[in-house]
Simulated scan of single mutants.
Amino acid sequence: MAERAGDQAAGLRRLFGRERMRIVTFAAGSVGVGKSVTVANLAAALARQGKETLIIDENADDQVAALFGSVGRHDLQEVLDRRRKLADTLLTLAPGVRLLRAERAMRSLAGLADAQRDALLESIGGMERPADVILIDASSSYPRGFSPLALAADETVMVLAPTSSAITEAYALIKKLSLGFARRRFRLLVNKVRGADEAEAIHANIAHVTQSRGLARTEFAGHVPLDEHLRQAERLCQPVTALFPDAPAAAAFRQLAGDLLCWPQPDGDDGGFEHFVQQLIHLSQRIDCTAIHAR
Rank of each mutant, 00 (worst) to 15 (best):
M1E: 07
M1I: 03
M1P: 07
L15E: 12
G17A: 09
G17L: 02
V24E: 02
A27M: 15
V33Y: 10
S36H: 04
V37P: 01
V37L: 15
V37T: 15
A40G: 04
L42P: 08
A44C: 08
A44K: 02
L46H: 08
G50V: 01
G50L: 05
K51Q: 14
K51P: 04
D62L: 02
V64T: 09
S70D: 10
D75K: 14
E78K: 12
V79I: 12
L80I: 14
R84T: 12
T89I: 14
A94G: 04
G96A: 07
L99T: 00
A105H: 00
A110F: 01
Q116D: 15
L120K: 03
G125E: 12
R129Q: 04
I134M: 15
L135T: 11
Y142C: 09
P143T: 13
P143W: 08
F146I: 13
F146E: 07
L151S: 10
L151T: 11
A153V: 08
M158I: 12
M158T: 03
A161T: 14
S165L: 14
T168E: 10
Y171A: 05
L173E: 04
K176W: 05
K176D: 12
S178L: 02
S178D: 11
L179D: 09
A182P: 00
N191R: 07
V193Q: 02
A199P: 04
E200D: 10
I202F: 01
N205M: 08
I206Y: 00
Q211T: 11
S212I: 01
H223C: 12
D227V: 11
Q238G: 03
T241P: 05
L243V: 14
F244P: 02
A247V: 09
A250G: 03
F253Q: 09
L261F: 02
W263H: 02
P266F: 10
G272C: 10
V277A: 08
Q278S: 12
L280H: 06
L283S: 00
S284G: 15
Q285F: 07
A291V: 12
I292C: 03
R295P: 05
